[in-house]
Amino acid sequence: MPYFADENGAIYHITADGAHNYPTTLASVLVKDGVVTLVNKEGQATADYKLWQSLTALAASIEPEGDGSVSLDDAVAELHTEIERFKAYWIKNNELTPEDFPLRFPADNAGAWAEQFLFFFDSDDE
């Protein structure tokens, strides 16, 4: 489930069908291309926020280490973000060419997921 945080740090979710928990008395919520736009009652866009595919990725984006060090939690959050990016890439390509991007590998080839992820991680694919 995707999430976004407003300027006050409050975190909200959006479901695949567009349902969300942002207070509708404050603004309407529009989602397009990974961006959440808040629209006031007059129909004016008041704010844009990045849509994150996981709470881990959202947290990593708002809690950077000040000294440049990378904690285990930071590393896991970064990998989680990359895995979510890989998942979105794979699903998008599955819709175009399902024979090349299957959603399931047979049990005797389950390691193919790790191979595909590493290939994606090392490439410039989006």
Rank of each mutant, 00 (worst) to 15 (best):
Y3R: 01
T81L: 13
I11M: 10
Y3T: 04
T24Q: 12
H80F: 11
F86I: 10
R104D: 13
L96A: 13
P98L: 07
T24W: 01
E63Q: 14
D6P: 02
G9F: 01
A47W: 01
G34R: 01
N93D: 01
A60M: 12
Q44G: 03
D6E: 03
S28F: 06
V36W: 08
L79Y: 11
Y3W: 03
A57V: 05
D73C: 09
T25F: 11
G34C: 02
I62D: 07
A60F: 14
V36F: 08
G43M: 00
T56W: 02
I11Y: 06
W90D: 13
V36A: 09
S71K: 08
A47Y: 04
T25V: 14
A10H: 07
A5R: 11
D74M: 10
S71R: 11
D108W: 02
P64W: 00
Y3P: 01
V31A: 10
T46S: 03
S71T: 15
A57F: 05
N40M: 03
L30P: 02
T25H: 12
S54M: 06
S28R: 15
F4S: 03
Y3E: 03
P98W: 09
Q44P: 01
R104Y: 08
D73V: 12
F4T: 02
H13M: 09
G68I: 03
T97H: 13
D67I: 07
Q44A: 09
A60I: 11
I11F: 07
K92V: 11
D17F: 00
V29M: 09
A88W: 09
S61A: 15
T15W: 02
V31W: 02
I62L: 14
R85E: 15
N94K: 01
T97W: 08
L79D: 10
E82D: 15
S61C: 08
P98N: 13
M1N: 04
Y49E: 01
A77Y: 04
P23A: 11
I11R: 12
T24I: 12
P23W: 08
Y3V: 05
